[in-house]
Design a binder for these strands. Sequence first.
DNA 1: ACCTGAACACCGTTCAAGT
DNA 2: ACCTGAACACCGTTCAAGT
Lengths: 203, 203
Amino acid sequence: MGRPRTPLIDRDRIAAVALDLVDEQGDFSAPRIAGRLGVRTASLYHHVDGRDGIVELVRDRVASAIDGTALACEASEWEPAMARWARSYRAAFAAHPRAIPLLMASPIRAPEVLAQYERAVGLLLDAGFAPGDVLTVLTALEDLVLGSALELAAPPTMWAPSDSSDTPRLAEALAAAPASLADAAFELALGACLGRFRELLER
Amino acid sequence: MGRPRTPLIDRDRIAAVALDLVDEQGDFSAPRIAGRLGVRTASLYHHVDGRDGIVELVRDRVASAIDGTALACEASEWEPAMARWARSYRAAFAAHPRAIPLLMASPIRAPEVLAQYERAVGLLLDAGFAPGDVLTVLTALEDLVLGSALELAAPPTMWAPSDSSDTPRLAEALAAAPASLADAAFELALGACLGRFRELLER
DNA sequence: ACCTGAACACCGTTCAAGT
DNA sequence: ACCTGAACACCGTTCAAGT
């Protein structure tokens, strides 16, 4: 066959198909991506740096939904800005729950997300946070976002255990729990963290 | 060769070797486990329910280090009890950082951990938390523990980016950050959550 | 019950050959 | 530059045969 006049595939379409496969089947493989693109497996390697490279592309694709515009605001507005950013960050993962285990293994490297961190740091510094507190605050928030996203992929421990006779109090709490437990927990922890951050600032 | 008089391997040794391999190399495979045990790959399948079954054994093995004894206390002591439990939970994962990506994909099913959740729920109910709040509180804490553990495996976003000239404020914050950022962030968020839980209780 | 050899389907990756 | 066929090493899993 040889080289086509115009390339048959590109990185973008590889990433899109990989994410589709993950959404549908929980994983992807080079042969299945190639199959959907009507191309041979080996062709992928002309566009992409191996399987890990595809994972990176998928990660960046998912992360592209994070809304960094909330961070462009007055320093006095740092609190709602961080709240909106955190919610958007979590929502980006929530949109692809089956991708989460795949993506959690390593950090987001997309330059746009890096730029968002730079802006977040600047916002917190301008708001008056001590330089030594800024990354602690940001990391705490990120822990919360990622942990909460993880929960969307793997409903956490054993809500609804097979036999609740050994766990009567768990059953009692479960019956009274809010319908969207994951969301409620995230909002509770987010509010808690933001409140504590404010205290840190006012001290 | 046929069946040996006494079994050559068992689930426990399979799990132990799998965890060793993960600690050393970041992953395991059936052939490598078998190799270390001096046995053929196919033998493993007489003891274990496929690769997923081995992952599950590893998960339970890591989780066995979680200290549930903190939860056996007076209801009035719920706050330090939850703090100790959360720290121990996180430390159990921290002891095997390379296992974290493997284990995060699905929840812990070990009966001992389930029993810990039952006790935690009982403790919070006895302390006076509204039944509808108890799982929200527990889930928030779990989000924090897991998100923070994840950070130990995958130092999160881009601390120390290759070129910090685009991110001067990030560099500034990084220079002032505490040595153990992950720990500081966890403690900050943990304190924030516990404080908020107390408010919930007193309302 | 438990180990083995052989087999199968699948995967990631490389590379020379072709245009 | 980019697609292909062929090849390689590796993996998960099954199963009949052996004790």
